[in-house]
Design a binder for these strands. Structure first.
Lengths: 331, 331
DNA sequence: CTGAAAGCGCTTACAG
DNA sequence: CTGAAAGCGCTTACAG
């Protein structure tokens, strides 16, 4: 435990041990490629000096960064928390550090991030970036949750169409014949896929279907609550493109004096942390975020390790419907 | 827009422009220190090749990392989201990248992170690390939310004692005379401070006070709900050490058939995203997380820039009580 | 098994 | 204003 380990370099250790820096380097990286006597001298010198390798120098020499970058469209969105945690856990186990950045910091900066030599690969949670930028990174990329077919990168996602069908079927089986979908942002691939899934599933079931605009946020759900309340014929089943939207819709509708699920059944999407503690607890599609983060990180790490894996196929993780109190039989 | 910008180095650009690498370097860093003719030749060569500076090499040469590291005890805790977002925003504006790591990845790894040359400074959200490790980093550190007096680092926090007093006063003014506090983990500085604040404030007000064990989580709040319900004399006012705990307590108590706030008023702590959308919406202490993140990042960046600021004093940000539906007049 | 030397890709005194 | 050369702190063929 050297107390003054501030600026010890490998040459300091070498000098103290009376060996070359090459030997110190080898002792640290491959102890058994060094003779016992030398090795012990070096290890002692390392101990005495409290030497810590300078990773930046090591990485430059080895032309790698030992780091992966997570890019998400809004870091303050709590949806991402468990994904970050899972990615970090996998990365840490593989001795990789994790960088994190909002993907809305500007075109220039984003383009640079993938080319400045400080990351080995990228976990991308945003399907809305310019494909020219994404494909311009000369780095392995894995898409999570969202995807963009124009990106030359594998993805780890749930089957969003099938997931919405689960929600529609659930409401239809409860006897609902008039369903409303509160969609996400018009240009978001998840929003589009979920809306299309809603339309085809309701069509197949022969129930009435309508759509109102939203953007995944609590506020948008609350706003639609007023539109819904003003309707002559109010749909009795509502499927939201996100849990936040659903919670916003429910809380506002209740403030307007309606009862959930007595007067309207509501289904969310994602199964965020508070979905089962909300009152009423929220029926929703469970999206296994930890699993997605884990698989995505493993996929990226595999691409980093085995650079000649030709094409990695998209991976699909299982999503299921969680039935709670916010949905009930139609009157 | 060079198409093959895969491995262009500064020497490639220099060769193409017919100048030295020094001139290319200067043109990029200080264009006006280079003659007009040279500058234009270089800029053209940069354009043609699509050259991107290798930040890893630049940083090694300049002996800095242009990166700050955020350390938090549990990345999947949604409490941190808006802090991460604020820190990232400030860092990005200062041209710093952000690394993120769970502080529970093991003693060795944590100690290394602060000494491997890949970060210039650390934002620390964990007051439970061994002071020897924290003080062993030869890097500027700023503590956020939590603090540990044994760390040789400034902090940005709210006044937790005063905040709890606000909550106690609120309930006392509503006529409550028997208060319960659900505390956080025994060894956590926030938990300790809030509990002590609760005890001194209730003592000063002359109302009855009791404490039950928790750990900030939803589950712990739900668990205490049963203990509370089993009491002969049930406290009519409950102050929880976190919002999550409060939501767990409320939802469980309601499932047991009690009404909130009719039969028990509940106050949380933090004002997380869903606090105002919960049903009933939660009266709580608003902890300005974005503000804390922003101030913390600015403080750290200032320490990075001005290395000889002797001692940075702790900063206190303002917290206030948000009154919502979960508290009401005692019967 | 070990060391001298080159090199990762930059920047920056220094000299002109 | 510009370039040759040294150097950031490592690792790794290469030679012995």
């Amino acid at each position: 435990m050297g107390v003054m380990n501030s600026k010890i370099r490998i040459s300091d250790v070498a000098a103290l041990a009376g060996v070359s820096t090459a030997t110190v380097s080898r002792t640290l990286a491959n102890p058994d490629k060094v003779g016992k006597a030398m090795r012990e001298k070096v290890q002692e010198a390392v101990r005495v000096t409290g030497y810590q390798i300078n990773a930046a120098a090591r990485d430059l020499r080895q032309r790698r960064a030992r780091s992966i970058l997570i890019l998400a469209p809004n870091l303050s969105n709590t949806f991402f928390s468990s994904i970050f945690a899972a990615v970090q856990e996998e990365a840490s186990a593989a001795d990789l550090t994790v960088q994190i950045s909002d993907s809305n910091i500007g075109r220039e900066k984003i383009a640079t991030l993938g080319q400045d030599g400080r990351a080995d690969g990228i976990i991308l949670l945003d399907g809305g970036l310019d494909p020219e930028i994404v494909n311009g990174w000369r780095l392995p990329v894995v898409q999570l949750c969202e995807w963009n077919d124009a990106y030359d990168a594998p993805s780890v996602c749930i089957d969003n169409t099938a997931a919405v069908e689960l929600a529609v079927d659930h409401l239809v089986q409860l006897g609902h014949r008039d369903l409303l979908h509160i969609e996400g942002p018009k240009d978001n691939i998840l929003a589009i896929t979920r809306r299309d899934g809603f339309l085809s599933a309701t069509n197949a079931s022969g129930v009435k279907a309508s759509i109102m605009a939203g953007d995944f946020t609590i506020q948008s759900g609350a706003k639609v609550a007023h539109l819904w309340a003003a309707l002559d014929q109010r749909p009795t089943g509502v499927i939201c493109a996100s849990d936040e939207c659903a919670l916003g819709f429910i809380s506002e509708v209740m403030r307007l004096g309606f009862d959930v699920p007595e007067q309207v059944s509501v289904v969310g999407f994602d199964d965020i942390e508070f979905a089962d503690r909300f009152n009423p607890s929220l029926t929703t599609i469970h999206q296994p975020r930890g699993e997605i983060g884990r698989q995505g990180a493993q996929c990226l790490i595999a691409m980093l390790t085995n650079k000649d894996v030709a094409v990695v196929p998209p991976k699909e993780v299982h999503a299921h419907l969680v039935t709670r109190v916010s949905t009930s039989r139609a009157l």
